[in-house]
């Protein structure tokens, strides 16, 4: 049924720390690996070794350059983007078959690959570009929040988290119940000022993003200024040594410009 549950018992989701994410793609590759062999798989790629490679991934890691007002430098923010398991997901309500649904027990948004007709309307309704069509199977694919891991008692307790969370080497991805105010993820969102993506769309995403921490000083402040010439004995000594070593045609010069047109390596 594509009508939404009035409320969900839990709001399982992710909290992604934009401060500590290093953009290593471990979450994305781990996601692809798990889901290519899990219940929702295979996540096929077309022309995987060729020039026009294509295939669904549930997690895409963008890089943004952020220039803050009043600073001379910019910073790079790595930005993982996946399904936010919204509370008001229009991707579900537009589905004509009921293949898309939001679970009442934990709020996870899923697609049933057995009943999806591949009309792609859900992907049009998602503002976050989180749904990717599987051209090979003719059905829509999306993040399952690793529903086949988090309740899977065949796995060790520490492995019963989404593959992306398990893989993250910097601990930038957190999984938990965002409907429970006392949960670790809710506390983290509160402490760090976690925010929603595109709140004006009104989809009420469950996943939250933690903003990059403010930097205290500019990079320039760490670079010691060059000493001015003061005419001291030591300076004259170095100047004499420099002239002595530069004798003949050997002069310190920049590397000659490479005009061969060839790429390095």
């Amino acid at each position: 049924m594509t009508t939404l549950p009035a409320a969900t018992a839990k709001k399982l989701g992710l909290v992604i720390d934009l401060d500590t994410c290093v953009g290593c793609q471990a979450c994305a590759t781990s996601c692809k690996e798990w889901n290519a062999q899990g219940e929702g798989g295979p996540l096929t790629d077309t022309d995987p070794q060729g020039a026009d490679i294509s295939g669904p991934w549930f997690n895409r890691i963008h890089g943004y350059e952020v220039h803050e007002e009043g600073r001379s430098d910019s910073r790079i923010v790595n930005f993982p983007r996946s399904c936010l398991h919204c509370e008001q997901p229009a991707c579900v309500t537009v589905c004509p078959t009921g293949a898309s649904y939001k679970r009442a027990e934990d709020g996870i948004v899923l697609v049933n690959p057995e009943t999806c007709i591949g009309c792609k309307l859900c992907s049009w309704a998602c503002p976050y570009g989180a749904r990717e069509y599987d051209y090979t199977q003719g059905v829509m694919k999306k993040c399952t929040l690793c529903v086949d891991r988090i309740y899977n008692t065949n796995l060790e307790p520490e492995d019963q988290v989404p593959a992306c969370v398990k893989a993250c080497p910097t601990g930038a991805r957190h999984f938990g119940d965002l409907g429970d105010e006392s949960s670790a993820v809710s506390q983290l969102v509160k402490e760090r000022g976690g925010f929603d993506l595109m709140p004006s769309m009104g989809y009420k995403p469950t996943n939250k993003y933690l903003p990059p921490r403010a930097r205290k000083e500019t990079y320039a402040a760490h670079v010691a200024p060059l000493a001015k010439p003061d005419g001291s004995v030591m300076e004259k000594l170095f100047s004499w040594a420099d002239k002595l070593l530069s004798v003949g045609s050997v002069t310190a010069a920049a590397n000659p410009a490479d005009e061969s047109g060839k790429l390095e390596g």
């Binding site: 994305a28 890089g63 943004y64 350059e65 220039h67 803050e68 923010v77 983007r81 993506l197």
Partner: peptide, 15 residues
């Protein structure tokens, strides 16, 4: 608004 990273945001690297 899409990224929550403020007005100074610019695409640097595609995924």
């Amino acid at each position: 608004e899409a990224t929550g990273l403020g007005d100074g945001v610019r695409q640097w690297e595609v995924p």
